[in-house]
Computed example of a mutant assay.
Amino acid sequence: MPARSTGNRYGAVPIAIHWITALALLGLLLSGFRAAGMVDDVAKAGILRIHTAVGVAVLALTLARILWWVAVDRKPPYPTSLPRWQKAASSAVHGLLYLAILLMAGSGIAMMALSGAADIVWGAGAGPLPDFTRYPPRAGHGLGAMLLIALTLAHVGAALYHQFVLRDRLLARMGLGRS
């Protein structure tokens, strides 16, 4: 499979970035909700250490994906059979997913910096973790997680609708099956 996209299929680079990011986001959501409910600071710091590292990796992958589309490759055009409203909805959901990821990364970084938790999580400091709810980026981070879940469900729902209801094999464009 070529690195760059073709007229009807995404290339190896965007496919790899997509699926790695998708799996990492699932892990981030699970670990974030798990950490939010923990009271044991040592265990919570351990989860946050992984959560923050993966979060920074997702930020880097997202920026790389944006740069890839701007400077290196072009997305395959939508199938001609796709109604205009579905093209618009797809573009909106994809754009909002990028925006949500960037806002989640920004609010996470801001929360760690403002609260001083980075020193505790990464081992340079000692003491209990701060109450993250006292810092304004925490509210945005929580709302961003809910937005990310809603957008992901819309994205996955649309993909499954195309695959199993319309049977147009749209998932093959993203490396799942033959086109």
Rank of each mutant, 00 (worst) to 15 (best):
G108C: 05
G175C: 04
L96S: 09
A57W: 01
V93F: 01
G144M: 03
A89G: 14
I47M: 05
I149F: 04
W85T: 12
S107K: 00
F132T: 02
L96N: 05
H18N: 09
G175P: 02
L63C: 10
P77W: 02
R9E: 09
A145D: 03
K87G: 15
A53R: 13
G175N: 06
A159V: 11
R173C: 02
A118S: 15
L82F: 13
Q86P: 02
A92P: 11
G142N: 10
A154T: 09
A89M: 14
R134D: 14
T21S: 14
G125D: 09
H94C: 06
R178K: 14
L29T: 07
W85N: 10
K75I: 10
V42I: 13
A71E: 08
M111V: 10
F132H: 05
P76F: 01
A154G: 11
H51F: 00
V93L: 04
K44M: 08
G157S: 09
L102R: 03
A110S: 13
V39P: 01
A12P: 03
P128H: 14
Y135Q: 06
A16V: 12
L26K: 06
Y98T: 03
T152Q: 04
K44G: 00
G32I: 00
A12E: 06
A105L: 04
I120R: 10
G46C: 07
S31N: 08
M112C: 09
R138N: 14
A24R: 02
